[in-house]
Amino acid sequence: MTAENRITESYVIPPELSDRRLDQAAASLMPEHSRSRLQSWIKSGALTVNGEVRKPRDKVMLDDRLELNAEPEVQVTWQAESIALDIVYEDEHLIVLNKPAGLVVHPAAGHADGTLVNALLHYAPEVENLPRAGIVHRLDKETSGIMVVARSLIAHTSLVDQLQTRTMGREYEAVVVGTLTGGGVVDAPIGRHPQERKKMAVVASGKPAVTHYRLIERFEAHTHVRCKLESGRTHQIRVHMTHVKHPLVGDPLYGGRFRLPKGATEELREVLSRFHRQALHARKLTLMHPATGEEMSWETELPEDMVNLLAALRKHRDELEQREF
């Protein structure tokens, strides 16, 4: 590791942090670093007080000087790959991108390469020094849409905090089976399915999860909805909409038996039978910029497959209405 790549920072203890524990004072002065990382640096001697190695619980006094001289920890060992990315916005702290359906976010068993992380390591090599290569939230492989990636430590800390405090706004669009008569809220805990380990389910022992949904357009046997998350559980929208008996069109895991609406035309039959992913798109993302504090928001258009699905449903509805006249 070259000298210019090392993390070197220096701070003087202000009056309000005098007589505080070293790890607590360091966390206040350097919020872009996690507490566990700061404690590790204190114990290793990378973070010193007046040039001396101290313990995390030792007290610091007014005008003590904290000096950090540490090597960034390589957080990932995955390989960089040249994979095209649809970048919506970027700066030194953030990358906001539009993920296509079919792209896996993290390398895992069966997906060691060809993932979003592999692409990010090629596009922005600095993310190798961040936990999970800067990924703070994810989209399922077959869910398309907008997501944010941290490009700096300060951004990673801020984005994780915004997710935990539910101040990051995330809105999705979905096409569900069945006709809804109005919007609503699903407030039901989500945990691992008791019998099928690949699935999540509404279970009493699960973690709290809240999904708000409202109607965009209603069809003969389907509904186009917008969903807003308060929490971010695995498969949350898919599980919650299935829980209220309106699974997502095309969902291979939660959609159940394939069904066609009564009176479906051959064209609609073909569109529905060929839609092999959950009809879910992350449409809008709102957050506070980690460095400036400015509220920022981005939206992405629906992908072609969902546009075509909605067009087919709309055409079928309109044809039925014309027959009635």
Rank of each mutant, 00 (worst) to 15 (best):
V203Y: 03
S144E: 04
G206T: 02
P131A: 08
V203L: 12
V136K: 09
I146D: 03
H224W: 15
A209K: 01
P208H: 09
H137P: 04
I216Q: 12
H222Y: 11
K141A: 00
V160S: 11
Y213N: 05
K141F: 10
T143M: 05
R166K: 14
S152H: 04
P194S: 08
G183R: 09
G145N: 07
R166A: 05
A221D: 14
G145Q: 10
I216F: 07
R138Q: 11
G169F: 06
V185Y: 03
I216R: 11
R218F: 01
A150V: 09
L180W: 04
T181A: 15
E128R: 15
H224Y: 12
L180D: 07
V148T: 00
I190A: 06
E217A: 13
L153E: 11
A209W: 02
V186G: 06
V202I: 15
V148D: 01
L180Q: 02
E217S: 12
R192Q: 12
H224R: 14
L163Y: 10
I190E: 00
S158H: 10
V149E: 04
S158R: 02
F219Q: 08
S152L: 09
T181H: 12
V149Y: 06
V186I: 13
T167P: 03
R132V: 12
Y213W: 09
K198E: 11
G182S: 14
V186Y: 05
R226G: 15
I216G: 07
G183K: 04
V136M: 06
Q164C: 06
S205R: 14
A133P: 02
M168D: 01
I146C: 05
H212Q: 13
P189V: 06
S144W: 10
Y213D: 02
D161P: 01
Q195W: 11
K207A: 14
G169I: 13
K199V: 00
L139V: 04
D187W: 07
K199S: 01
H212L: 09
L139Y: 08
R214M: 03
A209D: 09
D187T: 05
A209P: 10
F219P: 06
C227V: 09
L130I: 06
T179C: 12
Q164D: 14
Y123E: 05
